[in-house]
Amino acid sequence: MAEPVFAPWTDPNEKPLIQFKGVTKRFGDFTAIDNLTQDIYAREFFALLGPSGCGKTTMMRMLAGFETPSEGQILIAGQDMSRVPPNKRAVNMMFQSYALFPHLTVFDNIAFGLKREGKPKDEIEARVAEMLRLTRLERFAQRKPHQISGGQRQRVALARSLAKAPKLLLLDEPLGALDAKLRQQTQFELVDIQEKTGTTFVIVTHDQEEAMTVASRVAVMDEGRIVQVATPSEIYEQPNSVYVADFIGEVNIINGVATPQGDGYDIAWAESQPPLHAQTTRGFSDGQSCHLAIRPEKISISTEEPETRNKVRGTVHDIAYLGNLSTYHVRVPGERIIKAQTANTRRLSRRALTWEDDVWLSWTDTAAVMLEE
């Protein structure tokens, strides 16, 4: 039997672990969080994604208790947090800098919070041993932070945060200090650790790839508001606005005017060009301006004219070779550039297309997402 899909947010009987209810946070005249309402469920790996200054860290600091809302309520497990100080919340926060004690060993760093709580010695030793196993640090227990790598320090900080078995772990740009390859490896480790412990993780990041890799749901933020909350695949395939489409991955945005036609809409987009056609479940009125968002990998590029309805003629203006992929920047009517991506299954010398070639771009009726704004 297939495992049930983890999606508590679709079940009306599930009670959220965290509830933001009409939360606003002002710093003087500046509104950092603007009337925000959002539920987060137990065992979720929830990502807050957005550019610098969009309010994601403020949201997290309010959860931890370092900031209080100007208006609205934050509930954790049904309890209003407004009067609960940070050290009394079943919440732990892991900072970007890791903030390890340089003079303590890895073992003592992990044990620190448990010792402060006055736990018995054998209980502390058992818990730290468990955390060392979980983060694969057994061999480094007696080393000091400066004697281990950045990736290992990151795991020590994670082990220390999880040692007190918080209901909720907040991670503020936790992989910011790691190089690209190590980040990727650590992302999968984080997911693995989160699944094994069953702790709810809320991560703040401006790295879309990171959010897409680790999260059960992603909240895309802009100027103190959540613009869209959905699973990574929904955010990528069905963005609800140009802002979200543009923030996640590469995308082509074609502006035009919609006319209802058969099973979808015809979109007039450039003078003396045949209209493009798109299917959508959204309703548009006749003559309404719209945006088509099309991912480069959904666009085919060829020298022969294709047999499809959506086709545009253009000239190869630039080629970005990324090893496994090539992205062709094609100049089309109206001096627009449309990007098409192909997987490099053949060696470079055998590829047909080059700069200044005349090409055809084509895509299916369902490849583009029609957006209002």
Rank of each mutant, 00 (worst) to 15 (best):
G176D: 07
T366M: 03
L353G: 04
D122P: 04
I74N: 07
V242Y: 00
P4Y: 06
A270S: 13
E304A: 15
E117H: 10
G264L: 09
R116P: 02
Q152N: 07
D286A: 13
H317Y: 12
D80Q: 11
A7L: 07
G264K: 01
V191E: 00
A258W: 05
D122T: 06
G262L: 12
V251C: 02
Y328I: 10
I235G: 00
A368Q: 04
V220I: 11
G314R: 02
V229D: 08
T135L: 13
V330S: 07
A64W: 02
T366P: 00
R26C: 10
R282Q: 15
A367M: 05
A343M: 11
S289V: 05
L63R: 03
E71M: 11
S233N: 13
R143C: 08
Y321S: 02
T213A: 14
M1K: 08
Y236C: 05
G323H: 03
N92A: 15
A245S: 13
F188T: 13
A219Q: 00
Q184K: 13
L49E: 01
H103A: 01
R153L: 08
G28M: 07
L137T: 09
Q96L: 05
P8L: 10
A2T: 12
F30L: 14
E223N: 11
P232M: 04
N310V: 06
L322Q: 12
K88F: 01
F201E: 02
E271L: 10
T186W: 01
L348C: 02
V244Q: 00
A2F: 10
L371F: 09
I338S: 02
D246T: 14
N324W: 01
L75F: 13
V257I: 15
V204Q: 00
G287Q: 09
E373A: 14
R217C: 00
R127F: 06
Q187E: 14
G283W: 13
R26V: 01
L353E: 09
S362H: 10
N252Q: 10
T58Q: 02
P4L: 12
D365R: 05
G118T: 10
R282K: 14
L168P: 08
T205V: 01
P260L: 06
L371T: 02
A77H: 06
V227S: 00
M81L: 12
W360T: 03
T354N: 12
A320Q: 12
E130L: 04
R61F: 02
M212E: 03
T342D: 11
R346D: 14
A129W: 05
A47Y: 03
Y243H: 04
G55L: 07
P296K: 03
V218E: 02
V227Q: 11
H277F: 15
L348Y: 12
N240A: 01
L104A: 07
N13T: 15
Q96N: 01
F27L: 12
D29N: 14
Q288V: 07
L171F: 06
G334Y: 01
I253L: 14
A99M: 05
R43Q: 14
E195Y: 08
A343D: 11
H206Q: 10
